[in-house]
Design a protein around this nucleic acid. Structure first.
Lengths: 354, 354
DNA sequence: TTGTACGCGTTATCAA
DNA sequence: TTGATAACGCGTACAA
């Protein structure tokens, strides 16, 4: 790999001049400038990010720490982050923690030795480890927390409107006439899970709809979690007429359990998801879901991070991205209401076509 | 951030001694050794990977270049790679190319300035750019090509048995009695797409089953691609009784088109996918698919890369990972055969239960 | 406007 | 076994 010295020699100038040309750090006669750039081109010279980082005390890397890229919600977040980073000349170092706090701390500590411009973290569990690991270092680099809010974290955050999303889903089901609405939550030490549950319950309370404790099943954020929770819910009496799952994978597990129990969706039970994964739009039935702007979450995360890097003293930002309902075939009116509607229709002479 | 000099001073030894302790590069009296380690612990010292890389002419980073993390096949590959890397003390820098050769080349060139231990690339398109960009540098670092085989690439490769997978899918459909089998392929400049098609056609040929040109629809590797291709296939006469889609997203698009056309799967048409995404196992019907070992692909990629780093002179390896059929509800016998079977069953007095 | 020289934190070499 | 010192490639203050 060619270095500055070779460029300087071949262009017949000094090291300093080459550096000045490359960084615009001082005026250089157009004559020499051209010659340097030419040699750079010919040699295919590219400055060593290692040496540059060592010297500047900062590289163009951004550490991104997430629970698990295999969870279908995260790829969009990562992609959004990478695009925003790339557009600004930064690169992404990706780390999966599996929600293990020790792995997260280990990653954070080691990433620091690369002198990254900053780090983007989707905290594991409660996020306490995240906060501690960051505060343990005095001159800690910029850090933005994404998607989940650690308690006691004073710094930039970007989340989606989890409570609002849970509320929206519940309200939609209520409007359709459902009175027995159950929910499958993720592990409640995640701030996102508690927020979604909070929004959900508040909507029910407002509508004066009872929520018996067994109607709230805590489980894991995956298909198996949804499946097992749904198995429990389907055995309850009275059986719920709608289930709100806190993410799309869970919702798919719920749907599988419903099919296996010989019930139909949405005729017997409606299912609502959370995430709005594109792939759930290709399913049968298509899934109604609270759409999270994953790409935007990642992209905005990098944006905020870079702003903080540029101005470390600026006020902390706490952005909350709005969610949006996407309606599909997995929800409908409750069986009773549907039956009544059909009866009314018959009385009114439905079936006669114009 | 504490550095070696501080450690040395506080431990009352020289820089060299600290380095020797940390790298086991020379014997150090147990007495001093303990003191150094103690100070390291107290200060929370961690060596600067930047300085270390500059000095050693190599870092513990691995560049991973893939088309798009948003494509649901890749997260598992990335995860496998990251786990293998982490286990060996390496970190992953992730880059998405969107199958753009220029973006891939740009990434490769810039990654090199970080002096990574090596790079893992899933080549864009034909992979010509990959090969050229790598050969343009004489002392180029280790490079492993994953998933897709560039023409003229002389180096380590790891792929899955694409042709064999295509053959397996076709054979299964043939065994069930299908005679009119169509396929939706990905862009045929991808080696994986051509290989899958090749295996597919060879199985049909061997069984003396005709494959009219319109039965082969080239499309894009996503849901929309499968949908639009299926729309064409469903209008053909005679209509195919089975469709082999070259990946699971496409297969889901095909299923959506079938539903929209008022047909049933598998009663009217069988659908076979390729990937074996876990999520397609939660669908209705569950998707029959050729399972690719994505995690293993990534994990093995890093493994081979590290072996090459350790012994640059070793013979190139070209591993091909086996695929496996996963059978679901999306395939069944063709309508005619099913009807015949039903008729036979009636004649034989089916319906009388033991 | 250009060139020289130092330092970033580490490892490797060599002498003691 | 230990310590002093020279690189690695770059950016920059300062001198010319």
């Amino acid at each position: 790999m060619p270095n500055m010295k070779q460029v300087a020699r071949m262009a017949g100038v000094s090291l300093g001049t080459v550096s000045h040309v490359l960084n615009d750090s001082a005026g250089v006669r157009e004559h020499l400038r051209q010659r340097v750039l030419e040699v750079v081109e010919v040699l295919g010279y590219q400055p060593s990010q290692l040496a540059r980082g060592l010297r500047r005390d900062k590289t163009n890397m951004i550490g991104m720490i997430i629970p698990d890229i295999t969870n279908p919600f995260f790829p969009a977040v990562v992609r959004g982050a990478e695009d925003a980073a790339f557009g600004n000349g930064y690169r992404l170092v990706l780390c999966n923690t599996d929600n293990s706090e020790s792995k997260e701390v280990a990653y954070m500590n080691e990433l620091r030795t690369f002198l990254p411009a900053g780090m983007i973290v989707i905290p594991s569990n409660s996020g306490e480890a995240t906060v501690q690991a960051h505060e343990a270092v005095k001159g800690g680099s910029a850090l933005v927390c994404l998607d989940r809010l650690p308690r006691h974290w004073k710094g930039d955050t970007i989340t989606v409107a989890n409570a609002e999303g849970g509320r929206q889903a519940a309200e939609h089901l209520i409007e359709l006439g459902h009175q027995r609405i159950a929910t499958v939550t993720g592990p409640l030490h995640f701030s996102s899970a508690t927020a979604r549950l909070k929004g959900f319950t508040s909507a029910l309370k407002k509508a004066a709809i009872a929520l018996p404790p067994p109607y709230v099943q805590q489980s894991t954020f995956d298909g198996a979690g949804g499946y097992s929770a749904a198995t429990v819910l389907l055995r309850l009496t009275p059986r719920p007429t709608a289930i709100f799952a806190q993410n799309d994978l869970m919702a798919m597990g719920v749907l599988a359990a419903i099919r296996e129990a010989g019930l139909r969706c949405p005729e017997d039970i409606s299912v609502f998801g959370f995430d709005g994964l594109e792939i759930t739009n290709l399913m049968n039935p298509t899934l109604s879901s609270v759409v999270q702007p994953g790409y935007q979450l990642g992209s905005l995360g990098v944006q905020v991070l870079l702003e903080r890097v540029q101005d470390p003293g600026r006020k902390y930002t706490h952005q909350v991205l709005p969610t949006e309902l996407r309606l599909g075939g997995s929800v409908g009116p409750p069986p009773a209401a549907a039956a009544r509607a059909a009866k009314r229709a018959v009385k009114r002479g439905a079936g006669t076509r114009p």
